[in-house]
């Protein structure tokens, strides 16, 4: 961390440090490169939290691949009361007949990822798998396949490495537990 912190990080409890994360991502990069060797792979980052993870993961890959992004709306109490989930930024590339790896920062309830998987499946990719940096099985409502994961965590709220609280803490190089009820 630099001397000038953009905000206080005193209230954070570090769970996974920079090196531990790097090591884990290196392992994931190797595994994915091995599994997709010789295939036409598109890595799909789910905006916005996954960008840090996607960038670092892609640098640990040693096979060719394409990158694309997708963004879906989330349910909130205040808005969208009668709406349904929708894609707010769609893929630019066609995934039909190609191998797709969805890259998430975190998978918890599985609600929006479940929707995304159903949606992308209709476009007939050759295969559709999920890679997430953080997996929170304890919060799962919809069963979703997680093929590659960085870290399993219990039912706690975490920030850093792309994960935010009100857009804060994304740029931290570590993953930390954040008690938002103390705020």
């Amino acid at each position: 961390m630099s001397e000038k912190k953009p905000y206080s990080t005193d209230e954070l409890k570090i769970l996974f440090g920079k090196e531990e994360i790097e090591e884990r991502i290196t392992g994931l990069g190797k595994a994915i490169s091995r599994d997709y060797a010789g295939e036409e792979l598109i890595m799909v980052g789910v905006l916005r939290g996954s960008i840090y993870f996607l960038v670092d993961l892609s640098r640990r890959m040693h096979i060719p691949f394409a990158i694309d992004f997708i963004s879906v709306s989330h349910y909130t109490e205040q808005i969208n009361q009668t709406g349904v989930v929708r894609i707010t930024k769609d893929l630019d590339l066609s995934i039909t007949g190609r191998h797709v790896l969805i890259v998430e920062d975190i998978v918890d309830t599985g609600l929006s990822l479940g929707y995304l998987l159903r949606n992308l499946k209709t476009r007939n990719p050759a295969s559709l798998k999920v890679c997430t940096l953080v997996n929170v099985e304890a919060r799962r409502i919809v069963e979703v396949p997680v093929d590659y994961k960085g870290f399993d965590i219990p039912n706690i709220f975490v920030v850093g490495y792309g994960l935010d609280y009100n857009e804060k803490y994304r740029n931290l190089q570590f993953i930390a537990e954040f008690d938002r009820y103390r705020q």
Binding site: S50, S73, H74, D105, V107, T109, Y165, N166
Partner: peptide, 17 residues
């Protein structure tokens, strides 16, 4: 947490973003 009640930015609170 599901309803993101504590969030200001309603779109993104570290849940499956």
């Amino acid at each position: 947490s599901l309803l993101k009640k504590h969030s200001i930015d309603q779109d993104d609170e570290g849940e499956e973003t």
